[in-house]
Each structure stands twice: as C-alpha cells, then as structure tokens.
C-alpha cells in the first residue's frame, strides 16, 4: 500500500494536521517532564496511538477524496479537533505535567466533545447530500448498479444495462397490468460531420452536454442510456405514447436551443410503444422504425 503519495502531502489540510501534532508535541515537551521508562504503559500507548493514527488516516482520506464543500469542511474541522485532543492523550503517556497546571488537561478534554458534535453535524449533512445524489442518479441507474456497463464519457449506462431495464419493465407490465412503456431513440443528425469539422474534443463535449441536459429534463422514473456514438436510448416507464411524444418534443427543443448546434445538425427523436415480449425485440423494433423513418424522410421532403 502506498503510504506516502505526493498528492496527499501537497494538500494544505494534510500539512495542517502535521502542524497540529507538532504543536501538541511542543506544548507537552515545554510544559511537562519526560516520564521514566518503567512507568510508561505500552498497552495504553498501543491503544491510544493506534486510535490517533486511524483518525488521522480517516481525516486525510476524507479531505483528499471528497469534493470540496460544506460537508468536507465540517468533517475536517471536527476531525482536526479530535486529532488535537487525541495527540495530547497519547503524549500524556510520555510526559508528566505539574499538578497545578490544568491547561493541558482542559486542552485534552474539551476539544473532543466539540469535535464529535461538529462531526455529527457533518454526518447529518452527508445524509442529505446522499439523498440528493441518489435522486440525481435515479435517471441514470434506476434499480440496478453495474459499473462495467457505464459509458466512460457521459457516465450513462450502455446498451446491456438498458436491455436489463427494459426486460424488467416488460415483466412488470405483463404481471401487474401497469401502464405501457415507451422506448425513445435520440441521435444527432450529421454528428460525424461535426466531429470531423470541430474535432473529437468538441464532439465529446457536445455529447457530454447533451447527456447532462437530457438527465436534467427527464423525470426521476425515466432512464437514459448511451447506445453508441451520438445515439441515446431512453426508457419511459408507465407512459402513454402521446405523453412520451409531448415530453420528447420539449427535450428536443431544449437540446436544439441550448447546445447551439450548427445549421446542418439537428436532434432526431423516435418513440416506440413497447408491445413486444422481449427487450431485444423491442429495441430492434425501435431501430427498424428509425431506419424506416430515416430512409423515407428524404423522399417525403
């Protein structure tokens, strides 16, 4: 396991933890006298020392791996107070202080409960944060989490995952007489040209923005997946076809206006009411519909 990593050392919060430990050492060494070796209790040192060590590790991991924000700041502040208190507790095993000097005793005791109260607030905020995140993720993942099927560019799930979801909805529909399910295909006409003219970086950014926008506009019960390239699939459970058409019209309009697409590009949306008994058949039927519409559209125009 890598114990030392440059990214940890370069974080000022981590350095501050080191400073706090050193300040405690300084205070103890200046105000106290080193105890004789015979009266030092190794078991006490082991217990308190390992607790301190683990607390420092947990605080470091929290601040370096979490994004910045209120929750992280609260965890850090509370953790720092705990570290301060625990360090003095460990140093207590090595130094003896004059009986008249109560300062260190207060410094050892007082920050601990304050730190724990702050951490409790942090935990409550973290719980709220998780609820919000889960709601955000709902449109991406619904009831199943399977990271090998995540598209690395947009963080949406991909076709294998979508098939599982559609299978589930078809089973529910058949067993409970639930409302119908609609599948939607969304793609960007002439995306290859855009990619060629503007570069793959611009193409990737467009897809990323499009996926973020669709996630924002879809309902919590819907699910968006990236099929391939500029093709997306949407599952609209318990939705009538007319409802789906209205919803997708709004999404298409928003995509066209917000993404500032060049004139040769447009968003193509196709809806399909699921009547098939298997997910693969339903998706194939959707693709067939898309091909037919694409083939006949130039003739119609």
């Amino acid at each position: 396991m890598r114990m030392i990593n440059l990214r940890y050392i370069s974080n000022w919060r981590v350095l501050l933890i080191a400073v706090v430990v050193l300040v405690c050492l300084l205070l103890s060494s200046q105000l106290g006298v080193v105890k004789p070796y015979e009266i030092v209790d190794p078991l006490d040192i082991l217990g308190e020392g390992s607790t301190l060590f683990l607390t420092i590790l947990i605080v470091i991991f929290t601040v370096t791996d979490r994004p910045r924000g209120n929750v992280t700041n609260l965890f850090y502040s509370g953790g720092l107070l705990l570290i301060f208190s625990m360090t003095l507790d460990v140093l207590d095993e090595f130094f003896r202080y004059p009986d008249a000097l109560r300062l260190l005793s207060w410094l050892e005791s007082f920050p601990l409960p304050v730190g724990l109260i702050i951490i409790s607030f942090a935990a409550a905020e973290w719980r709220r944060e998780n609820k919000m995140l889960s709601r955000q993720l709902m449109v991406r993942e619904k009831n199943l989490r399977s990271h090998q099927w995540v598209d690395p560019l947009t963080s949406l799930y991909t076709t294998p995952y979508f098939i599982k979801l559609v299978e589930r909805e078809i089973a529910l529909q058949n067993s409970t007489d639930a409302e119908s399910t609609v599948l939607v295909s969304v793609n960007f006409k002439n995306f290859a040209q855009y990619n060629h003219e503007m570069g793959t970086k611009a193409g990737d950014e467009l897809l990323h923005q499009a996926s973020e926008l669709m996630v924002l506009l879809l309902r919590p019960q819907d699910c968006l997946c990236r099929e391939h390239s500029d093709h997306f699939l949407i599952l609209l459970p318990q939705t009538r076809l007319s409802q789906a058409d209205r919803l997708m019209k709004v999404i298409a309009q928003n995509l066209n206006s917000e993404l500032e697409l060049p004139n040769y590009m447009s968003v193509e949306v196709h809806t399909h009411h699921v009547e098939e008994l298997s997910a693969v058949d339903a998706i194939t039927a959707l693709h067939t519909q898309v091909e037919e519409m694409t083939h006949y559209a130039p003739l119609a125009n």
Binding site: D151, P152, H196, E197, G199, T200, G203, H228, S229
Partner: peptide, 14 residues
C-alpha cells in the same frame, strides 16, 4: 469505449 480507436484515428486525420 468501443469507439475509442475510431476517434483516435479521426483525430489523427482531422
């Protein structure tokens, strides 16, 4: 990403 190499090549060209 199954399109990775296609995109690498497109970048080389563009």
């Amino acid at each position: 990403d199954p399109h990775l190499w296609q995109l690498v090549v497109e970048t080389l060209f563009s």
